[in-house]
Amino acid sequence: MSDNESLQQIAHLRREYTRGGLRRKDLPEQPLALFEQWLRQACDARVPDPTAMCVATVDAQGQPYQRIVLLKHYDERGMIFYTNLGSRKAQQLAENPRVSLLFPWHFLERQVMVLGQVEKLSTLEVVKYFHSRPRDSQIGAWVSQQSSRISARGVLESKFLELKQKFSQGEVPLPSFWGGFRVKIDAMEFWQGGENRLHDRFFYQRDGERWKIDRLAP
């Protein structure tokens, strides 16, 4: 079989989803309660990077972009992540604050999608988190002008060593170009794989102070 023929076989790759279903009677009224339960189970199952989420944004021309970032906090106000404020994602969110998140917990045959709008975190919130990071991570935030073009990796490594020496004494200051976003949740969809491709999907949508829950066809 040629390499090309081997690649064509991906159309036939499939497996059955047999880890269990999701039923309406088992759903809490608040989506974050189910999210917390699933996240805890992902951690207990040692799913790699359980807080990794795909963040989807759209640029001014309508071109979607996606990238993986880490969820750093969540509560009833929303879900938080941090980034360089000069990055492509931050620039796109400044133009269009609508965002979609996806948690791909394949090992548990689950995924969670979040729809919402972002707001920038306060300087106090950002400073508090920044100084909780490992020191080298704090220095790393100074090194990269995220999404800018660079000639080689060595440029980053040299800059890191230079800044590590510069900040060798005392506290690493917060870069003015580094911050965070809170995703205010408008809707959440929970997907649980099912046998014969009869997956379970439930869509929570904010309805005033309550949540409307709909089952969706797979």
Rank of each mutant, 00 (worst) to 15 (best):
S176D: 09
S144N: 10
H106T: 13
W105G: 04
P173Q: 04
F107M: 12
V118D: 08
E157V: 12
R98N: 11
S148L: 15
K120W: 06
K164M: 03
E119S: 02
L124E: 14
Y129L: 05
F167L: 12
V99P: 01
W105Y: 07
W142L: 05
D136P: 03
E162F: 05
L115F: 14
F167I: 06
S132V: 03
Q145L: 12
G140N: 02
Q145A: 15
V99Y: 00
Q111F: 10
A152Q: 12
Q165Y: 12
V114I: 05
V112Q: 09
F107E: 14
M113T: 14
F130N: 01
G140E: 05
L121S: 02
A152M: 14
Q138H: 12
R153G: 11
V112P: 01
P173T: 06
E119F: 00
W105F: 02
E125S: 08
E119C: 04
R133N: 10
S147I: 02
A141K: 05
S147L: 00
K164I: 12
L156W: 08
G116P: 04
W142A: 00
K164D: 07
P97W: 02
T123M: 14
S151E: 15
S147T: 05
T123E: 06
R110S: 00
S148F: 09
I139P: 01
F107C: 14
Q165E: 15
G170T: 06
Q145N: 13
K128W: 04
R133F: 10
A141E: 10
Q138G: 06
L163N: 02
S147K: 03
L163V: 09
L174F: 07
V126G: 05
F130M: 01
F160N: 05
Q117F: 07
R110F: 00
V126E: 11
V127D: 14
F160A: 01
W142R: 05
S158L: 10
S168W: 15
V127R: 15
S148Q: 15
V114M: 07
R149V: 14
V118A: 00
S144T: 03
L174I: 12
F167P: 04
Q169L: 14
S100G: 13
F130E: 00
Q169I: 15
P104G: 06
S176A: 07
S122E: 13
S132M: 07
S176H: 11
P175G: 12
F103W: 03
I150Y: 13
V172H: 11
L156K: 08
S132Y: 09
P173K: 04
K159D: 01
F130S: 07
S158I: 04
Q117T: 15
